[in-house]
Nucleic acid binder design. Structure first.
Lengths: 347, 347
DNA sequence: TGTTAGCACTCGCACCTAGTGAGTGCTAAC
DNA sequence: GTTAGCACTCACTAGGTGCGAGTGCTAACA
């Protein structure tokens, strides 16, 4: 059976109405609200066809129709008119996003919060996977006679540091020499590359004179690298789920929140997703606990290269058009602002 | 009326049973379970007295008794036997807490997570308020010809930095001079002190030669200081609330989670609390939304001075003895470990 | 052949009802 | 002061009823 013009129109109306009201849509309501030009009986026939084709379901005999995941997929792919944001909305996002936050993590966290506020959904963001990021600079700074700060700057602009407490005093020359030599040795190598080298051994043989100092520093160096490789997950607006009647059931709400609380699992799911804008609806999600959710993610770029992700999760009944345009605009803006602060270097 | 020995025994039994089961405790159950040596009727009389005195309440005529906030207070102050942790439990906490994390924030976040895992409650931690923290060190590091890293080290060991993109190129000497001069000017001053100075103006007149560079740096300097003054809030185990039958009501759960989601409010509440171990039970909390919760906080020290806070929030029916001993042990350990990494400096 | 009106039927939901059981409060006896 | 006995209370549950929104089918109509 084919999807006739009229069937599409009816389907679209059902999806639209259900997204707004969360109530199963009946034939009478439909013909009244949307002025279809045909009687409820006709609509009923069409709806019956649509159900047979898998686009609609029936919670029970005497209830209206509810769109299936397949219907949402069709809606997202072709029926939906992509909303363009008004200039005010854009302006709002731009200003909120650029409120002079300099630290990468904070900016991303901020973006997640903004996204949940606008969409009224649960939002999340992950920092880029830094395995491809390269070391640019290693610095050792004196603090007091037995304390130094070890600082690593990556090409992406990410900075990480730690305070190291030394067993023995050090000389300024030694410190300087060591940081120069470390920079010389590791500059341009990716973080993960350096981590796989047997650093502690190789470095000691190269620079016997500094071995005592290096011995103290190296383990810290490694742990900073490890930490830099971690993907951070930020989440916001998790209580927004309560505003959806489909989550008025305590068990469902609990399951949803507990799924989000398993941050490692969730991060993994996000990392494994493809790039660009990705939408997975209901049963398209591999995770069992997401069978009633839709997940939308988009990627932002740092320095035009590294990819982080930003997105929302909510019930399959979701304002896809709005959410999509907001996410798209936000990731574009994020990428743009990370280009300005982190890029265009010429050394 | 006085609290006789027997009344206390009955009250303690009711509190103990209710904490475990969350069911109102009846006279018959009590005499059976706890072998009181008296008949249910006698217990009923005593319970009636206790109710008159405000220690018990009655959800409705034909239900058992439930401890009031006043009862919990008595319990916490005198009835409760403080649990001492077993050596295994201590060992578990110690090792989990010391799993070589070097960054202050991560350690605290980690501690909050551990606390929620052990107590099965919602836990939180805030970093110290840094207003009393003093500047120790300001450093400007070259990255490329128009990018420098501005880095601030505080006496507490807290480090914060940002990448600054300059409009004009800089010289290494200028950079060095500026960082030395900034360190000289601001070292030993507290963060808030420096923030209240009209830095941008005063600094410019002092060092005319470097004004271009300083002009670029100073706004970043200020925003880092501001950020360092922020108290960070970490929270964990918020879904644990669902394991309490008293939060099986969707509205209650929602209210609880939304309260926690208002991080600014919650942080403020925590900051305003006294030091040391603080317990507030039900109506002792000033916040309306916490009337059915108990809040337990304890302070940890950084470098023996600055105070951060760690604690749990949950229903008034809470295993006070267990929770208290865990929190106490954890804050002691935290303070100890922060002493080792951040302190003992002699310059 | 597609569309429509009519009507029986379905089923969730809100409401009511009575029965049950845990527990209290009171009284009178020990 | 303690206890047994008993009437009473009240939340909770299960079963029953009426309502209304909505379907599905059939027969008539354009």
């Amino acid at each position: 059976m084919d999807l006739s013009e009229r069937k599409l129109k009816i389907l679209q109306a059902i999806i639209g109405d259900f997204i707004r009201t969360a109530e199963p849509v009946g034939s009478r309501t439909l013909s009244k609200k949307f002025d279809m030009g045909v009687s409820p009986a006709t609509i009923r026939n069409e709806m019956s066809d649509l159900e047979e084709m898998g686009y609609l379901t029936h919670p029970h005999t005497s209830a209206g129709r509810v769109p299936s995941d397949k219907a949402y997929r069709l809606y997202v792919n072709s029926l939906m008119e992509k909303r363009t944001l008004t200039e005010e909305e854009k302006e709002f996002i731009r200003t909120k996003l650029n409120s002079n936050i300099s630290e990468l993590e904070k900016t991303i966290q901020h973006a997640a919060r903004l996204l949940s506020e606008i969409t009224m959904l649960t939002s999340f963001a992950i920092t880029p996977n830094q395995t491809a990021d390269k070391l640019k600079y290693i610095n050792l700074l004196p603090v007091d006679d037995r304390t130094v700060v070890l600082m690593i700057v990556a090409e992406s602009g990410k900075i990480s540091n730690t305070t190291v407490k030394l067993k023995d005093p050090y000389s300024m020359e030694g410190l300087d020499l060591l940081s120069k030599s470390m920079t010389f040795t590791y500059k341009g190598k990716t973080l993960s590359e350096v981590l796989t080298l047997d650093i502690i051994r190789t470095f000691r043989t190269d620079m016997a004179a500094l071995s005592r100092l290096a011995e103290n520093i190296m383990p810290n160096f490694l742990s900073i690298l490890e930490r830099m490789l971690d993907v951070d997950l930020f989440m916001d607006g998790y209580t927004n789920i309560f505003s959806f009647p489909e989550y008025n059931d305590i068990d469902k709400a609990k399951m949803f929140l507990e799924m989000l609380n398993k941050k490692d699992d969730f991060t993994k799911t996000l990392i494994e997703r493809g790039d660009g804008i990705m939408i997975t609806i209901g049963n398209e999600n591999t995770d069992d606990r997401m069978q009633e959710c839709s997940l939308i993610t988009a990627t932002y770029h740092i320095d035009g290269k590294l990819l982080g992700k930003l997105g929302v999760i909510g019930p399959t009944r979701m304002k896809y058009d709005e959410v999509l345009s907001v996410i798209e605009y936000m990731t574009d803006n994020l990428s743009e602002s990370f280009k300005l602060t982190g890029g265009k270097e010429k050394e």
